[in-house]
Simulated scan of single mutants.
Amino acid sequence: MPSKRRIRWAAVPVIAAAAAALAGCTPTELHGYMPGFDESGTPATNHTEQIASLWTGSWVILLIVGVITWGLMLWAMVVYRRRKGQTGLPVQLRYNMPIEIFFTSVPMILVIGLFAFSSRVQNDIEKPWADDEVDVHVTAIAKQWAWDFQYNDATTDGETVYSMGVQAKAAADGTLDRDELPTLVLPVDQKVTIDLTSRDVIHSFWIVDFLYKKDMYIGHDNSWSFIPTREGHYEGKCAELCGEYHSMMLFNVEVVSQSEYDAYIAGLEADGNVGDVNEEYNRLQNLTGTDGVVKESETEEGN
């Protein structure tokens, strides 16, 4: 039998090789190939790292449990298989209290542990900013099948401005012009609160790289507080089946510098998009499922 010293020396190159392999991984690979990370290593929001760690950690634990379980199953099938010449049933094991306690307590510990970690992360994500801490306050309004974004008290005079959205329109080859999609613009490294409201049915606000989504209900507004920490373009969509053109309910998210954000808000104000998005805009301003545009009289009838 090899001595303990030899075993330790044999483990050194294995550990070094594992460390070298992990060091060569990209941030995306280290987080289980989840979105929200790029080569810079900066996550998309202040919550992205925490969510990814919970997800990958849970899968690692479950994989370890699975490997142990599969190993025990295989061991039992090999060791206790019926051998040549054997007949009848093998010796039956009943009412073994230690085994029953083990197989009851271990799953309970795992479930309670996963719940505790998930609850802690969720509580951190769901904790809203205090009113005096919010830098950017946006209202995202969902409607079949597009998005409107209202920037509350965004101008220097404290006025509200907004942008109206229409649903995605697919070309004949199935491609989408994402430049025409509704766009939510946010400044980087600022505390953001987004109020989420629906005009018709249940929708779900999902920015893919932010690794989080929240449902939007009639009569019950949700909100979400976070800090976008990396400038760039992100894609958003409705994650709740909301009708015939649910798959076309897409939007863009642009995380930009503070100066670019201020210029965007000033542009909305200059275009006359000042005030609240009210019930006048309950329905889409384009023909559902087509690339046509509703006439003013048709829009009034739809309202």
Rank of each mutant, 00 (worst) to 15 (best):
D215H: 11
D221N: 13
L176G: 03
I207Q: 05
K169S: 12
D177G: 03
V166P: 02
Q190V: 00
S204G: 15
T175M: 04
H203W: 07
V185Y: 06
M216Q: 14
W224V: 12
D195K: 14
D209H: 03
L176Q: 01
K191V: 11
W224N: 00
D215F: 12
K169Q: 09
D189I: 10
S204Q: 13
L176V: 15
D209I: 02
H220L: 15
D221C: 00
G219H: 04
T193L: 08
K169D: 14
T183P: 00
I207P: 01
A168G: 02
L186D: 08
L211I: 06
Y217D: 03
T183I: 00
T197C: 04
L184V: 05
S198G: 02
Q190G: 02
M164E: 13
S198R: 02
G165R: 06
V185G: 05
S198N: 01
F205C: 03
T175I: 02
S163C: 06
V201E: 13
V208L: 10
V188L: 07
M164Q: 14
F210G: 01
F210E: 06
R178L: 10
Y162L: 06
N222D: 08
A171Q: 12
V208A: 04
M216F: 09
I218S: 10
I202K: 12
L186A: 08
F210T: 05
L196W: 03
D177E: 01
G219N: 08
D179P: 11
T193Q: 11
T183A: 03
G174Y: 07
R178G: 09
Y212P: 00
I218T: 10
H203M: 08
N222S: 08
D177V: 00
V166G: 12
V166H: 12
D195L: 09
D200M: 12
I207K: 00
V188K: 10
L196A: 01
W224L: 14
I202N: 13
V201R: 09
D177A: 00
N222Q: 14
I202Q: 14
H220P: 09
S204I: 14
L196Q: 06
W206G: 11
L196P: 01
G174W: 05
L181I: 12
D189P: 05
M216H: 06
L186K: 07
S198W: 01
A168F: 02
L186S: 06
P187N: 00
G219S: 00
G165N: 02
K191A: 01
L176W: 04
A170G: 05
G174I: 04
S198A: 13
T175F: 03
A168W: 03
H220I: 15
S223C: 07
D189Y: 07
A171N: 09
T193D: 10
I218P: 10
F205N: 02
S163W: 09
D189Q: 13
I194W: 03
I218N: 09
I194T: 06
S204W: 11
A171H: 06
S204F: 07
A170F: 15
V208N: 07
S198Y: 04
D195T: 12
L184K: 03
M164G: 11
V201L: 05
D179A: 15
S223L: 11
K169I: 13
W224A: 04
D173A: 03
A170K: 15
D215E: 15
A172M: 08
S223T: 13
M164Y: 13
